[in-house]
């Protein structure tokens, strides 16, 4: 099953490569990975998604925790959580019918058109990964020129938080 793992990491040189290296070294896959400094710029927040059963997820969390730069690790999938991913899609859109079709789709998925040329639309869409997948399916026949996805960011629901 899909796992969303959140990590609070020292914002130090080499820290990210240790996380990534751990995955290849232990034979785990990374499906998506996002990383950026937090409000405290000595800390980075990473979200990564991977596939695995409970036992594997537990090993991954423990292994990540063992890295010296890691401050906190949680498997968000264990509790209720919010998952968001940002996507930019460039679509072929020259004739009027297609342009109307794209607009309808964008509206249904609550996206926005952020750039326009005579022959293309660039659409921005945020949501969980399934919603983004569904949008891609919806516009596939229209003609996708390019897709850029940010990878998943996640946060726990409720009062729980990940902080030093």
């Amino acid at each position: 099953m899909k796992r969303i793992i959140s990590i609070l990491l020292e914002n130090e040189s080499g820290a990210l490569s240790r996380v990534v290296g751990l995955f290849s070294q232990r034979g785990y896959n990374i499906d998506t990975l996002t990383v950026a400094p937090t409000d405290d710029d000595t800390l980075s927040r990473l979200t990564l998604t991977t596939q695995g059963d409970d036992q594997m997820a537990e090993q991954i969390v423990k292994q990540l925790h063992k890295l010296i730069d890691t401050i906190k690790v949680v498997d968000l999938t264990v509790g209720s959580h919010i998952e968001r991913e940002l996507m930019l899609v460039k679509l072929k859109a020259s004739d009027a019918d297609i342009r109307a079709e794209v607009k309808r789709c964008v509206e249904i998925f609550r996206g926005t058109i952020v750039d326009v040329t005579a022959s293309s639309y660039t659409v921005q869409l945020a949501g969980d990964s399934e919603k983004l997948d569904a949008f891609i399916e919806a516009v596939r026949d229209i003609g996708i020129m390019e897709v850029v996805r940010s990878g998943v960011s996640g946060i726990a629901r409720g009062d729980k938080f990940l902080r030093v």
């Binding site: 537990e58 423990k62 292994q63 063992k66």
Partner: peptide
Amino acid sequence: VDPTSVSK
């Protein structure tokens, strides 16, 4: 002492 060794 190493949690990763347990149940690995």
